[in-house]
Design a protein around this nucleic acid. Structure first.
Lengths: 133, 133
DNA sequence: TCTTGACCTTCCAGTGACTGGAAACACTAC
DNA sequence: GTAGTGTTTCCAGTCACTGGAAGGTCAAGA
């Protein structure tokens, strides 16, 4: 398979696939013409990566997951740990964003949104000490 | 005020303050020795920026907000629109992350996390078509 | 006067995970 | 032969900083 076929079948852009090769996530063969030649196993890896990335795993996480995926002697505990740490990061992020949403939502609801200059949003930005930490 | 004082009083790293000058968010004066010389108004702007950034506004948004902040003839509607668009982005992001959390939470709860190789997390990554789109 | 140390300056490079674009080579169909 | 598509590599840009190097400035103390 050429990169275009793999891109279509995996749903990943060809650019991304080349990038994944560059950083060592996949290692497709090369044909005599210099074109990348993908095996089914490469396609599986790319689908795996696409799915993991869509769940928000970092490339570093993906590297670890892919290694475990290919290791028949793996312990599921290792996979679970990576997933749990990622889950914790996601939950932390949701918490941060929820705080922003609450603050911002309140400010927006207080703002008249008309042609006058008075604005509680700007007032807050100008006056409030940083409550984020 | 030198940059160190402003950094302490605004809570922003000196590096960040220099960066904000470089991209034109602030324009401190310069002393004869080449040191930046900050006025109270620069400090206020930096506090404003710090607060806006902590609410997740992009630098581009900050540029707009700062302009409105300094415009006595502004319409609060313009501020509100920026804030509402940002709020919508935040809510979209929270939605995406919540989906990830739900999927990942389910997978994690299904994984034994022991020394055996069988793992529903890997099984999902390997098998599931991308449901993110 | 000299030194020490804190502070300041600019410039360059790196982060994460791609993405866009240019220039050139390869292949297929007509 | 040529048009069009696919592929290659390489370089630069994204966003908002952050780290570090090399060197200039200043205030305090011996």
């Amino acid at each position: 398979m050429n990169i275009g076929d793999v891109a279509r079948r995996s749903g990943l852009p060809a650019k991304t696939i080349r990038y994944y090769e560059e950083i060592g996530l996949i290692a497709p063969l090369r044909g005599a013409n210099g074109y990348r030649s993908f095996r089914e196993s490469d396609l599986h890896k790319l689908a795996f990566l696409g799915r993991a990335r869509s769940l928000g795993f970092s490339i570093q996480d993906c590297r670890g997951l892919l290694k475990l995926y290919e290791d028949r002697d793996r312990a599921s505990a290792d996979v679970k740990r990576i997933a749990q740490e990622h889950l914790a990061r996601i939950e932390r992020k949701i918490g941060e964003l929820s705080d922003m949403r609450d603050t911002l939502g309140h400010l927006v609801s207080c703002c008249a949104g008309d042609d006058r200059p008075d604005c509680p949003i700007l007032a807050d930005l100008a006056a409030a000490p940083d409550k984020s930490g």
